[in-house]
Write a protein that binds this DNA or RNA. Structure first.
Length: 196
DNA sequence: CGGAAGATTTCT
DNA sequence: GAAATCTTCCGA
């Protein structure tokens, strides 16, 4: 509890939150047990002016993006390509539809459970993608709108990541977004063996 | 109301 | 390199 960030942490500018999330722990508790991992890759999605963002130029805050228009610190989960879920953290105060996509984790807790859900024994492959980590942590549509400050899906402080260990690059698989596809909104921890 | 496209993964 | 697979969104 004490080691969880409060809502003001998520109210901050989206790219700042994306950077800060690196090294923090994403935790998921279910009847099967606890699964968690350190966040090693994130991407920022900057609302109505970002062509890659689901809330780009959307007039009415209806449908799946609804949660992004509300308070920060909530989970935005959606189905992509008809078969995989993606997990996002809503940022900024009410009225600003921005979010951070969590793209990869370094597994830390409940690894056995993750292996069963993912049907693989290779730790490196357990959470190395948006769809993979959702399956490993049992995140699906029922997690849409959960409060990350008060639910079975939450974020707590992990380890500090120095700037020298962070790479900033354009986002992945959003070529359709025109010039916004080149914006450096992706943050990833370099593979320096920091977790080994 | 129909069609198209998608913040991916996995296998060949 | 291509298929799998279905919700959401936009145009008509």
């Amino acid at each position: 509890m004490i080691n969880k960030p409060d809502r003001s942490f998520f109210d901050a500018p989206t790219l700042q939150v994306a950077r800060s999330l690196l090294g923090m722990k994403l935790c998921r508790r279910t009847s099967e047990g606890l699964t968690a991992g350190y966040i090693i890759e994130t991407e920022g999605y900057l609302g109505e002016d970002d062509k890659a963002c689901h809330s780009y130029k959307r007039r009415s805050p209806d449908g799946r993006t609804n949660i992004m228009y509300g308070e920060s610190g909530y989970a935005y989960v959606y189905l992509v390509y008809g078969m995989y879920y993606c997990f996002n953290v809503v940022t900024r105060p009410s009225g600003i539809p921005e979010a951070v996509l969590v793209r990869a984790l370094f597994p830390s807790d409940g690894i056995k459970l993750m292996e069963m859900r993912r049907n693989t024994g290779k730790q490196k492959a357990l959470c190395s993608g948006p769809g993979k980590l959702c399956k490993a942590l049992s995140i699906d549509k029922s997690c849409y709108g959960l409060d990350l400050l008060d639910s079975e899906l939450y974020i707590e402080y992990g380890i500090a990541i120095p700037d020298i260990a962070v790479d900033i690059t354009p986002r992945i698989n959003i070529a359709y977004a025109g010039e916004d596809a080149d914006k450096p909104y992706r943050f990833v921890i370099k593979d320096t063996g920091i977790f080994l």
